[in-house]
Write a protein that binds this DNA or RNA. Structure first.
Lengths: 265, 265
DNA sequence: GCAAAAGTGTTTCGTTTACACCCATGC
DNA sequence: GCATGGGTGTAAACGAAACACTTTTGC
């Protein structure tokens, strides 16, 4: 066994956390990865994460590591599995408690702590370190399941969003296509959306400026990873007028209590 | 820190597994508990489980502990959460990886290794050791979710079962009542059930004997815990003719591949 | 002014729900 | 023979899916 000052009667595995962070660029789901600076798997891409401290919960550890490695401070982490294959880490016995998280564009605008953090479209994720390929598959499966029943999609959009944006999000998560009109109806009749009162400062000028800001933040977020988004096929989706909606959390909480309420998509 | 021969540079938590075993007595969901023989929580009821060995996966550890403590050998364990509150164990930092399992009556008939293992109806579970009350709540929530989409209910019934049996099972898991005719239709049109060809030895004699055997196995399983099942209200449900069905696993696997197939109850 | 996307209602179809009667069995 | 539960079909209501046209915006 290794040397060290923490000794136990029986062998203890090391415990890490890993965080699968989903982002949305308006068109595709993206994943936040960091390039490993040390062995093992030096130079490989992996999820943000690391060893859990002895005096913190797994959630706290995951958030701490996420912040340290990417600068992201997220409020919502969902634990979706613990991975315990005996040889998943060549160093010693390590089990990892895995979470997924949903990042808004606006969550990232700020810091640039993460020199080595980078977004990858889900379909273009490179081979990952450890068993992270497997973990990623499990994370996306779980997200697909959860999106049907929990209003988590909004965690990937700005505070205010348009229906087409929301629809594109659902479509990229689930890999299907919805009829626009049916999507509107279904979303509206859930009762958890409200039309955002526009701040209503004149019009074209306001929208123009707003538009510009969004474009910048998209670039900040996804610019580094968009090797493929410059392909001929995909011009960046622009919206025209766009009625804005926002997620009404209070109404959702009330609905959830009331009855066996299902979001169902 | 404690003495011992396994030493690490950084503190490692201990890792345990816990197993929430669901059983069905034809009327109610039951939970398998063991009485703790040592501190902490000596004399309290808790889930079967224990420390994970360094050379086994969590699944393997959970199965091993389950077998050691209750004699149960189950094939299906579902990991549903890892619990990491810092002070959940007074001895040292312990995190637990929790599974739920579904036990058939026939799984138990055999061994009696488990002097201290006992079934409790879900509504009559005593206060549990550690954070096991909380874990139990999470387990039942998860079971309720899963039962909609996975054909796990059959894991709680004998190989062959009648529709009323299956319906009672779904009703006790979900805490609702279904219309008998609609339940039939829905279950049949899933395509995962097949009518079990009766071995067709004459009739009344066969059924009578069979009936007797089942009664015995029920008693073996649930006799110890049925303080409350002797109340006036509930005479044991007997079935008359009862068309038997069985779960067709192959057909299910095929359906699952084919399309976005949902069980939906 | 033309192309592309946003916004809106109605009809059709399938699924879910509600409901009633006959039969078999055990007492 | 009576009470209890098992087995089956049909009609009404609801929700999901399909579908077309008008308006706005960017070029």
């Amino acid at each position: 066994m290794e040397e060290g000052k923490y000794c136990y009667k029986y062998p203890h595995p090391a415990v890490t956390t890993d965080c699968v962070v989903f982002g949305f660029d308006g068109k595709r789901l993206n994943i936040l990865l960091i390039e490993r600076g040390g062995e093992p798997f030096k130079g490989c891409w992996a999820f943000p994460g690391g060893f859990m401290n002895i005096d913190e919960t797994a959630e706290q550890g995951a958030m701490r590591e996420l912040c340290e490695e990417t600068g992201l401070k997220l409020e919502y982490l969902k634990q979706f599995g613990t991975f315990t294959a005996v040889n998943r880490d060549p160093r010693e016995r390590v089990i990892t408690i895995a979470f997924y998280a949903l990042a808004r564009k606006s969550d990232v605008q700020g810091g640039d702590d993460a020199a080595k953090a980078q977004w990858f479209p889900l379909e273009e994720v490179p081979p990952l370190a450890f068993d992270h390929d497997y973990i990623l598959r499990k994370a996306t499966e779980q997200l697909k399941k959860d999106i049907h029943f929990e209003p988590i999609g909004f965690g990937l959009l700005d505070e205010q969003f348009t229906m087409p944006e929301l629809q594109r999000l659902y479509e990229s998560i689930l890999g299907v296509h919805f009829d626009r009109r049916n999507f509107y109806k279904k979303m509206l009749q859930t009762g958890i959306l409200e039309e955002a009162e526009t701040t209503d400062e004149s019009d074209s000028d306001y929208y123009g400026e707003h538009q510009e800001m969004r474009r910048m933040s998209i670039d900040a977020l996804f610019g580094g990873a968009s090797q493929a988004s410059e392909q001929a096929c995909c011009e960046e989706p622009r919206r025209r007028k766009g009625t804005k909606f926002s997620f009404n959390k209070e109404r959702y909480e009330r609905l959830k209590e009331d009855k066996s309420f299902r979001l169902e998509f």
